[in-house]
């Protein structure tokens, strides 16, 4: 077998390091505080942080291209995102809103080609 298959010692240390570290991050609060009463304001703050994290992931992926806001090229993506949001708000679910969002994207890109 080639070294391309087995990899290097360094590479394996990296694999093990990221695996253990990531598990500790995931287990952190679950392991220490599962079922324990945390300050209510902290619990509420954690719940409120969730929309912020996902908005911070989503919005740049929709409106930004090569590191800046660029509506001139991103408007079909914005339209697709709005379509998905409206359908999800109207009838819930994931599959139909995402499919209609992608259909919107493909359609708009086809029209302006």
């Amino acid at each position: 077998m080639s070294p391309d298959f087995w990899g290097t010692t360094e590479g394996w240390i990296a694999v093990i390091g990221l695996t253990i570290g990531t598990f500790l991050i995931r287990y952190s609060f679950i392991g220490l505080f599962a079922g324990k009463k945390l300050p209510p304001r902290f619990e509420r703050g954690v719940q409120l942080a969730v929309p912020a994290i996902f908005a911070a992931i989503v919005i740049p992926l929709v409106v930004m291209a090569s590191g800046r806001i660029d509506f001139a090229t991103r408007w079909p993506y914005v339209a697709a995102a709005l379509m998905t949001a409206v359908i999800a708000w109207w009838r819930g679910g994931t599959f139909v809103p995402v499919s209609l969002g992608m259909a919107t994207l493909y359609g708009l890109q086809y029209l302006v080609r």
Binding site: L48, A49, V50, P51, A52, I53, F54, A55, A56, I57, V58, I59, L61, V62, A80, A81, T84, A85, I87, A88, W89, G92, G93, T94, P97, V98, G101, M102
Partner: peptide
């Protein structure tokens, strides 16, 4: 990826605090 996160997020935005958090986070 962003589209599925949007669809999963929408039901969360049930209070003004959640909506404000999403706007600030975005």
């Amino acid at each position: 990826i962003p589209l599925s996160f949007i669809a999963l997020m929408i039901p969360f935005l049930q209070s003004r605090a959640h909506v404000s958090s999403a706007l600030a986070g975005g």
